[in-house]
Amino acid sequence: MQRAFFHFFAHLILQEQHRRFYSHHLGQDIDMLVFGSWGYPVVIFPTSGGHDNEARDFKLIEAARPLVEAGRVKLFCIDSIDRYSWYAKHLPPAVRVQNHVFYDQFLSEELVPMLQRECNVDKIGVAGCSFGGYHALNFAFRHPNQVAHVFTMGAAFDIRQFVDGHHDDNVYFNNPPEYMPHAHSEHFHWMNIILGTAEHDFCKEDTCRMSALLAHKGINHRLDIKPFGNHDWPVWREMFPQYLNTI
């Protein structure tokens, strides 16, 4: 009886690994939770100011459990540095966006190469809810040679509201509505792009505008508007496994 209970309980616990490693670009340690033993790598960005445990605590990982346990995907929940960048109101706007550039360099030059080696892939997937969706899409469009799948859920993409009127090249090249009309890469046309929102999501218009921009450029993508729901986790938990299933 005890052995049967142990096996049942073990099945309930999804394999989780905590990693902390030093980023040379950020000059600090950064945390990441990993779910699954093998599968296609998908990096999940947290919402505004969120941490690596957010997707687990709000049951987004649980929603994807069948795909993780089947070895279809391996999920990497990375910490954000929003408190030092976009949401760092105590810092000058130029410093905020520069800190985000350091984060982008950490992702492209440290994290992604590590995942490419670990999972034996050329490209990865990225995903995020709300502000995490901005991070996912911005990273994918800045580095299309590194990303094959991008899933956004309830996201907005114009970051000019975070820089108090300041504008420089760093702002421009991290603001997808600005740089994407002029961006060109064959990798855009190979990318699996899903933009998810809900009928009553206050970010719906932003998501629809991004969809229109991509359509104007002839970039294939899917705009998924759920008929009910708003800007909240129950909608995102419904979307996430559906989107992962397209990998």
Rank of each mutant, 00 (worst) to 15 (best):
P144E: 03
L137K: 01
D104H: 09
I194W: 11
D201R: 02
G39V: 07
H216I: 00
F58Q: 13
E16Y: 00
A10G: 01
V73Y: 08
L12P: 01
E16D: 09
Q15N: 12
Y87A: 10
L75P: 08
Y22F: 13
M114A: 13
P144I: 00
S80D: 08
K226N: 08
T152S: 14
F141I: 10
N145F: 04
Q17N: 13
P177T: 08
F35A: 09
H182G: 05
R222A: 04
Y134Q: 07
V73I: 15
Y22L: 03
V68K: 06
G165L: 11
V235A: 13
A212Y: 00
N99V: 08
T246V: 14
G165A: 07
R3I: 08
Y40L: 07
E109T: 10
H187R: 15
C119F: 03
P66S: 10
G133N: 01
S80A: 13
I225V: 15
L33V: 04
F173L: 12
L115D: 12
D201K: 05
P113N: 06
F139H: 06
V171W: 07
G154A: 02
D57P: 00
F35E: 06
T207Y: 00
H184G: 11
C77T: 09
T246H: 15
Q15R: 13
R209T: 06
V121F: 11
R117A: 14
R117F: 03
F157P: 00
M191F: 04
Q105C: 11
D29A: 08
D168F: 00
P144M: 05
D104W: 09
M153S: 01
H25T: 06
V42W: 07
R96A: 00
R72C: 02
D158T: 02
L60E: 11
K123Y: 06
R20E: 15
W236C: 01
V150D: 11
V34G: 03
L26E: 07
C119P: 03
G165Y: 09
C119I: 02
P66M: 10
V43N: 00
D201V: 06
Q242A: 11
A4C: 05
Y84M: 09
N175Y: 01
G196K: 03
F162V: 00
W236N: 02
H221M: 06
D104R: 12
A63Y: 05
H216S: 14
G36H: 08
M239Y: 15
V121G: 08
H182Q: 14
A4W: 05
A63L: 08
N175W: 03
S85H: 01
G218K: 06
K226C: 08
W190T: 14
D104Y: 09
E118Q: 15
A140Q: 10
A94P: 00
K204P: 02
H24M: 02
V171E: 04
K123M: 04
F35R: 08
E186V: 07
R209M: 07
G27E: 07
C129S: 12
I247N: 07
H143F: 10
V121L: 13
E69N: 11
F45M: 15
E110W: 01
L244E: 07
Y243G: 02
N53F: 13
T246L: 15
V42L: 04
R237K: 13
Y172M: 10
F106E: 05
